[in-house]
């Protein structure tokens, strides 16, 4: 599967601006979208410019900062490292889709309550990464949280309150989900 994707990427990257478009069908935050896109279009630009979901940010051009982190097919990905066409047939969750029925997700709430953000630019990426991380590791230690979020950069907070928030969210999520698979 992965190597198929890789060939696919190369083929379309090489073709570059020859501007044959491809159809992408993707479910984002529960909404089905069908769009014609250039093969070279990055997933992050697709999300921001084609779907208008500007909560996913761009902070670098080398996939270091994690500001563009989204959940694709159940895994966290830096959406600047994927092409939009790779999302075809898939499912994506962005920061805009995290709250349900107007209720903040426990991670969002914990970020607010623990002053885990300042300028807010890196925040959506951190929250999405924390969302995936806590699914993998619902009861992490501080060290595990630090490692789990080390692919995301924040310049404002010094991380301490982010760690605190993720810890608090993990506790609330566990309290809400009494069984292992209940989340």
């Amino acid at each position: 599967m992965q190597s198929d994707n890789f060939n696919f990427e190369c083929e379309y990257w090489v073709r570059g601006s020859m501007s044959s478009t491809r159809t992408v069908r993707v479910r984002v935050n529960g909404v089905e979208y069908t769009k014609e896109v250039e093969p070279r279009l990055l997933l992050v630009d697709f999300i921001r410019d084609h779907l208008g979901l500007t909560g996913t940010h761009i902070g670098c051009d080398t996939s270091n900062c994690g500001a563009c982190t989204v959940i694709m097919n159940g895994r966290s990905v830096k959406s600047c490292t994927k092409f939009a066409v790779e999302a075809d047939g898939g499912e994506i969750l962005t920061i805009e889709g995290l709250a349900s029925d107007g209720n903040l997700h426990p991670i969002q709430k914990a970020f607010w309550e623990n002053h885990a953000l300042q300028c807010g630019y890196c925040t959506p990426g951190f929250i999405m990464q924390a969302y995936w991380f806590l699914k993998q590791n619902p009861a992490p230690t501080e060290e595990e949280i630090r490692a789990g979020l080390s692919g995301n950069l924040c310049r404002c907070t010094g991380y301490q309150n982010i760690i605190k928030a993720v810890k608090a969210a993990s506790e609330e999520l566990r309290a809400k989900a009494p069984t292992i698979n209940g989340g």
Partner: peptide, 21 residues
């Protein structure tokens, strides 16, 4: 006092210059 800035940032509804279209 909890920040009143935060709801927009934690829901991805902030408005940065790059978001202006």
């Amino acid at each position: 006092v909890k920040r009143r800035e935060d709801p927009r940032f934690i829901t991805g509804t902030g408005n940065y210059v790059a978001d202006v279209t």
